[in-house]
Design a protein around this nucleic acid. Structure first.
Length: 416
RNA sequence: GCCGGGUUGGGGUAGCUUGGUUAUCCUGAGGGACUGUGGAUCCCUCGACUCGGGUUCAAAUCUCGGACCCGGCCCCA
């Protein structure tokens, strides 16, 4: 027996129906917001990802040399490929440019709950101007998706990377040291963050104020604690979101999202049912295009961890669509098989989901099978019926049946 | 990469402490009772000890190592 590689999964029919159902909702909502789908290759030059995230990530991705000696990596995320695509080929398209994508990504990490080596991400990127409208649009899409998929328990936290960055800059912290402090703050490792701030010659008062801001979580009023452009920007975003009906959000100035290329608003969504790996969405405004050789542009976007989101939904009782078949065609005896296939073909041509006995089973066994696949109707094709130019249509839910003229079959299927 | 717990037919499990006949039960799948009517019942069949080494007369059981899964740490773009 050959095992599946570590951290990968097979998806059976039930699972796939569930996944496609969820995927369809996300796609539809993105389209409703005016986003259009793009797709990029599963593998890219490794450089694309190290430019974005630093050389250390090579340890955590599937990176290898291909037969031509090229440094290749399976994509660990989709923002960088989307931006590479934009810089290469889409930069002259009309703005704002609204893109979404859905696809698998790969990371060479230790799998655990909600974490796989092959996983799926749904995401959207908006290339626009830096106004609060753009950020609000993206948050609104993410929030609307959460609502549409029916997830009951989740938190949307919105912050602004500029708040803490400016405080550190004003306190005279070197721009190379600041990210290290932010990193510690993001992980809520306050003692170490304090130590680093002391090392950067910040005064105790300033340090405590930074820690206090990092812990600032709550409704829009908490913005009263701060001032400046970042505050105005967040207020602008929240105002628009209110008009959009997105009110289940809170401010969290401690959302830092580690990396340097985030430029302003940042947000995260988590689903508490998931425990340790509870974050299901992350996003913000960022600047990547110039790293990829393009002009500096303002973009904002998010990525949703598809697998985790589904896991959260399942923990809340989501079961997905029940499998069913419209019609099961059941030939009685070998003499009727040819005609049964003709009938099945007719129904299928009309787009009716139709299954037919392929194993030459007895009537009783076939009925049992029809029941097992949750067939709504069974069309019994036997000599008795054919002699009258008719077939028997049985409603499997009501347990009733009647004779239907062969030529009226399609029209009468709905009400047997 | 680190720590801990696991792995028995397709799914769910008993057996493992204390090694010993044909590995338990439920479910599933195929066939039959039943060549004209499903969800029931009965019968038959299929199907498993994660892999490799060691100890032993004898290993699902004890032991070592690998793989994979689960929980946590690190990481999380």
């Amino acid at each position: 027996m050959i095992q599946r590689p570590r951290g990968t999964r097979d998806f059976g029919p039930e699972e796939m129906e569930k996944r496609r159902c969820l995927e369809a909702i996300m796609r539809r909502e993105a389209a409703v917001f005016g986003f259009r789908e793009i797709a990029t290759p599963i593998f890219e030059y490794t450089e694309l990802f190290t430019i974005r995230s630093g050389p250390n990530i090579i340890e955590e991705i599937y990176a290898f040399q291909d037969k031509g000696g090229r440094e290749i990596a399976l994509r660990p995320e989709l923002t960088a490929p989307a931006m590479r695509f934009y810089v290469n080929e889409l930069s002259n398209s009309a703005k704002p440019l609204k893109m979404f994508y859905f696809g698998q990504c790969f990371r060479y990490e230790r799998p655990q709950s909600g974490r796989f080596r092959e996983f799926f991400q749904f995401g959207a990127e908006l290339i626009s101007n830096p106004g609060p409208e753009s950020d609000a649009e993206v948050i609104a899409l993410a929030a609307s998706i959460m609502r549409r998929i029916g997830l009951k328990n989740y938190n949307i936290r919105v912050g602004h990377i500029g708040v803490l960055r400016n405080m550190l800059a004003e306190a005279g912290v070197d721009s190379e040291v600041a990210p290290l402090i932010l990193q510690k703050l993001d992980k809520k490792e306050y003692d170490e963050a304090r130590q680093r701030m002391r090392d950067a010659d910040m005064e105790e008062e300033q340090i405590e104020r930074v820690v206090d801001i990092t812990n600032t979580v709550g409704p829009i009023d908490v913005l009263d604690k701060i001032e400046g452009d970042a505050r105005d920007h967040l207020l602008g975003i929240f105002k628009i979101l209110e008009a959009y009906g997105v009110t289940d959000i809170e401010v969290d100035l401690g959302v830092v999202r580690g990396l340097d290329y985030y430029t302003g608003m940042v947000f995260e969504i988590d689903a508490p049912v998931l425990g340790a790996e509870k974050q299901i969405c992350g996003g913000g405004s960022y600047s990547l295009t110039e790293m990829f050789g393009g002009e500096k542009t303002f973009s904002t976007g998010f990525g949703i961890g598809f697998d985790r989101t589904l896991l959260a939904l399942e923990k809340e009782g989501f079961e997905g669509p029940a499998h069913s078949m419209d019609v099961y065609v059941l030939p009685v005896g070998d003499a009727c098989r040819q005609e049964a296939h003709r009938i099945a073909a007719e129904l299928r041509l009309a787009g009716v989901r139709t299954d037919i006995d392929l194993m030459g089973r007895s009537l009783a066994k076939s009925m049992k099978y029809a029941n097992a696949i949750n067939a709504q109707r069974v069309v019994i094709v036997g000599e008795k019926e054919l002699a009258q130019g008719a077939v028997t249509v049985r409603d499997m839910n009501a347990g009733e049946q009647r004779l239907v003229k062969r030529e009226e079959l399609l029209a009468k299927l709905g009400h047997y």
